[in-house]
Design a protein around this nucleic acid. Structure first.
Lengths: 262, 262
DNA sequence: CGGTTATTTGAAATACGTCAATTCAAGTGG
DNA sequence: CCACTTGAATTGACGTATTTCAAATAACCG
């Protein structure tokens, strides 16, 4: 459903594959974890061991996510999202899950809230249970640190998302969102955010995440394109003017704790 | 600043105080935890032991919240909120912290995100570290279960908030918000949500939480009042028509996991 | 009582949503 | 290779929700 025009982009092999790893499915995951900490050979083994739980899902699948029964997972290929559905059909996408990212680490779900995890493209997952269950080790390895950081990132992103939805205009929202996606896509050749990166999401999906109608999202996109800030075509996003885009995204201001306010 | 007209309401003594507890400050906290699980005498002792860390904050204080340095806390009196501030002064309130509720359990903060915890009224806190640090006990007590549930609640509320901000109209948002606050205020005399409960928040603060301008929030409030759904005056909220209010709040729809979507 | 802060209201501007139609890209079967 | 289908992207016209600016009350506090 959501993967006609855009099916090829995200499958394109990256250039900076972790060397020496035969298992192709593990590469996006290892790349992402490796960005957060240095992984030991043993860490890599622990990740590769997850392969036995690998599972495929067609696009549109609703993944079963009772936190207690199913536990944490990683997406190793394709994109998914957390979402909540309302009676009248409206839905809010809470966050996206890109290849190499995880879901089910937090106590979301609970059937009655309308929450669900949905496959936005063809999907492959592995269970992360065997990593998370081990809990804080006596001597935390790089992998443990990476998992902790993943957790922090998810939390920070959720805050970002609330700020977007509550305070930013449509124009600002899209700019802010694209910058987040660029950061998530990983560093480019120059070390900074990649100028161009895969974004295999339909406008409808992105609009549902940003709390905008598809029509309005499209119009905002046109504005941003006309202003030369970015380009989205064929499942790829291209940041054309990073500085202007960051300015449009109205980033938060740092704040020192002060005893006794104004 | 935010506590002129509304300073008296939240201080009013509740009727259903936990009996046999001399320490007045601990009552709201014990009441809330007691709603989630049955506390043993030992559990109550563990909570009372937190009293040594009790601390007061004037309204408007920015509380220091570097997750690692300061750790989790409970608010034992007054109201606070988590918020993010933007460069141009806009702020998004991420969630409220009522008497007996906690903050700092999650890895929020990180100075550069603009996140902060703010005292909305005069505030009293205790450090929860000694409870949380003990980690999962061999035989988890009622208190441990309660802490787990607190965690779940916070997560679920954050989802609710995103749905409000992203999908609901102003009218729906306010209705949805009031119902959440009613639930948080605890059961009334009849066991259901209390018809009337303390809500010592200014319209400006609530508007900042709901992503609405104060002016519009006020107008929506007028509509809801005119429709006979609710009343807010002098730091108290009164739900006049629970059924109609729930209908206006467009609650989420339950969803069974389905392998292979439509 | 005077000063301050919250609430309330009006009028005008604008951002955003809805409805409806068209274009475009990609696949499918002949 | 070309009609034909389908889902996504795009655009126009119009209505409505929400914001902004400005001002007037109303509640609280010392």
């Amino acid at each position: 459903m959501a993967d006609r025009r855009i099916a090829s982009a995200w499958q394109a092999p990256g250039r900076d594959e972790p060397a020496g790893v035969r298992e192709a499915w593990a590469r996006p995951l290892l790349r992402r974890l490796g960005r957060l900490a240095t992984l030991t050979a043993e860490d890599i083994e622990r990740v590769l061991a997850l392969g036995v739980t690998r599972r495929r899902w067609p696009p549109g699948s609703l993944l079963p996510v009772d936190a207690r029964a199913w536990g944490p997972h990683f997406v190793v290929a394709g994109w998914a999202c957390n979402q909540r559905t309302l009676r009248d059909g409206r839905r809010q996408i809470l966050d996206f899950i890109a290849p190499g990212e995880g879901f089910g680490f937090d106590p979301l779900s609970e059937r009655h809230t309308g929450h669900s995890v949905v496959a936005l493209t063809a999907l492959e997952t592995v269970a992360a249970g065997s990593l998370a269950d081990e809990g804080p080790t006596a001597s935390p390895s790089g992998l443990d640190h990476a998992l902790q950081d993943v957790w922090f990132e998810i939390e920070a992103r959720r805050q970002d998302h609330m700020v977007r939805l509550g305070q930013l205009t449509g124009y600002e929202r899209v700019a802010h969102f694209i910058l987040e996606m660029q950061r998530r896509a990983g560093p480019g050749a120059d070390g900074g955010g990649a100028r161009s990166f895969p974004l295999p999401l339909t406008q409808e999906v992105m609009a549902d995440a940003l709390g905008l109608s598809v029509v309005h999202f499209n119009r905002v996109l046109r504005q941003l394109r006309a202003a030369g800030l970015l380009e989205i075509r064929g499942g790829m996003a291209e940041v054309r003017d990073p500085a202007a885009l960051a300015k449009a995204a109205v980033l938060p201001v740092p704040q020192d704790p002060v005893i006794g306010g104004p």
